[in-house]
């Protein structure tokens, strides 16, 4: 089981901020595919320019494994304070 968090405009697009996925998809790409299957607009937004992913509060690059991941966050471009 992993917890997926959306921030900024991504949660507006999705209509949710937090959702549990059980079982945890094997890789980040599989998680995104699962999300896109359910909500195409959100799936496209997750692949949009400047959207980063963090696994267990660490930024990741590329298609990482989600084995043992408790939390995956999708972060749109950071806007500063």
């Amino acid at each position: 089981m992993t917890r997926v968090l959306l921030f900024g405009r991504l949660s507006d697009i999705a209509g949710w901020r937090e959702r549990r996925f059980d079982p945890t998809p094997a890789r980040l790409s599989a998680l995104k595919a699962l999300i896109a299957k359910d909500d195409r607009g959100l799936g496209e937004a997750l692949d949009g320019p400047g959207v980063r992913a963090a696994v267990d509060k660490a930024l990741v690059r590329g298609d990482v494994s989600l084995a043992g991941a408790a939390e995956v966050a999708f972060l749109p471009p950071m806007s500063g304070g």
Binding site: F7, G8, R9, L75, P76, M78, G80, G81
Partner: peptide, 11 residues
């Protein structure tokens, strides 16, 4: 840094 790169989302 805080104004442009810190992880905040502002509406």
């Amino acid at each position: 840094y805080l104004k442009s790169r810190a992880p905040f989302w502002k509406k």
